[in-house]
Amino acid sequence: MSGRQDPTASARAQTAKTPVLEVRDLGVTYGSGPGAVMAIRELSFSVDLGEFVCIVGPSGCGKTTLLKSIAGLLSPTRGEAYVAGKRVEGPPKDLALVFQEYNRSLLPWLSVGDNVTFPLAARKVPKADQLARRKAALAQVGLLGFDEKYPWQLSGGMQQRVAIARGLAYEPAVLLMDEPFASLDAQSRADLEDLVLKVQRDTGLTVVFVTHDIDESVYEADRVIVLTQRPTTIRQVIGVDLPKPRDQITTKAHPEFVRLRTEVLKLIKNEPTAS
């Protein structure tokens, strides 16, 4: 995995035309009858191979619901999602999810190393292969040598890195991240934002990153999708043309960065707050 420039074979097999993730007319309504709640009215967008897309929206909008639908953990009421050209009908093989609660998404009875290869072990990937991918993934996130430790012995930032390593070892086409740094302190958050950018640079992975932090969304993304309040649709899609590699100091001082974040902020501020 280290040094590879492109993700899974299935994704590679696609032509440049087929997006690696496609969401078509997605709608989610909870319940039925008069008490029904429409979380998502209609969402359609696509993500190309190697893109870094951030999804932002006011709190209460269906960010989580959207991610669950793409990850196959939730059946949408309308529309569908396609990952690597295949329709999502249950957790897709080419997708890895990084959860927000790092301290609950890592299994406490497994060491860091075992956690990283947990999905592979359960799928009976050969041992040698598992260990190779484990090593590469941990190296990618800067935790080489932490195999034998337990997740609860690590700091929050390190735990989230383990979760990311787990996603990387899985070798997906798309990495979904659900507000992954929201529960971390500012310093860890900055470090991890840079880590994800670096990983994406090194592997060419496609990343879909949900966040409520506007600065983070502009800093990380190639494109920012701004959602409306419930019932959610796309408010606007903003392209981010900032120079790469991004840097916490220079990029954030760049006038274009300031303009973009102001624009996103305005879009979100104009949304009504969640009832």
């Binding site: 909870y30 039925s32 989580t64 991610l67 669950k68 939730l74 059946s75 959860f99 609660e101 659900d178």
Partner: peptide, 12 residues
């Protein structure tokens, strides 16, 4: 509650 509850959601 990001992605906490299990199972395909049938909230009602």
């Amino acid at each position: 509650a990001p992605l906490v509850t299990g199972g395909t959601q049938r909230i009602s």
